[in-house]
Amino acid sequence: MQYGRFLLRRVVHSVFVIWGAATVVFMLRFLTPGDPVTALAPPDAGDEVRAALERRLGLDDPIHIQYFDYITDLMVGDFGKSMEVLDRSVLDWIFWTRFLRSVELAISATVVAIVIAIPLGVISARRRHTVSDYSATLFSLGGISTPNFWLGLMLILLIAVPVGFIPTGTPGPLLHEAVGDLLAGDPGTLGDWLRFMLLPAITLGTYFTALLTRLTRSGMLEEIGKAYVKATRAKGLPETLTMYRHVLRNTLIPIVTILGLQLGTLIGGAIITETVFEWNGLGQLLIERINARDWTMIQGIVIIIAIGFVTINTIVDLLYAYLDPRVMDE
């Protein structure tokens, strides 16, 4: 009941935010220099050709009608059509595979980050002022200070080139293909997937890992000092359980929200990582379309990323409220 109301409020809020984001993206077009018809039409085109193009692109309507059309199109999942290759819709262009590649990369990086950062942060906090603590601190400082495109290049230079069997370009198989082959008895595809994913995931995940390590460490230290930890020990609960069930859990609750917001950085980082590793995903497409000055495509990609980002944040907020119901009361 209480949670239901909270859920409703959050969902309404995120729908509002997405609508706002769509409006911003719609307005972006009016800032672009030059008009699309001139860009598209042959230089010697007459007025009729231009008028036909204008109608084709829906630019002859008054602005509020265009806006209304844009929003209603979005609601039915029509993200617009390319300006360069007419009639090619954004979704056609994005293909399912490009989207999947980007998502796979982002998720792998997140997994790398979580698997490394949380134990590292915990160890660092519990063995404060030891060599392990200092190394973890140094690592996380370096991690949040290293531009990931450079890190990617350095990994190629120092690992991929000397080792030889770690590919640095054009992505390998998709995960579902790899799993399919594995089930069919051929583990080779999964190995390929891993080989291709290894460096990009590390590249993209390092900043996140470093940040998460820092947050976990400082959060744990703050939490360990609280009175309830002493009370938990007084109950005789084994130390490991005190750490997992109480301290770590409470440390992670606020971190979840911060990480939700930081996902923006991860998505941004993915664009760069894709460029470095010639990873054929959404980010590379965005860069390519920007260089082609294909505004409608850019709008489509940006709004798709924004919707994904807002959705993830909403889910994270709902999770937070589930873990720590106090937030519903504010």
Partner: peptide, 26 residues
Amino acid sequence: MRIGDVMLAFPSLVLAIALIGVFRDS
């Protein structure tokens, strides 16, 4: 703050790239 939330709906690099795409011909 709602307006602020809308700004946060865009990952900063994505928004930055899109804006620069728009403005770089100016």
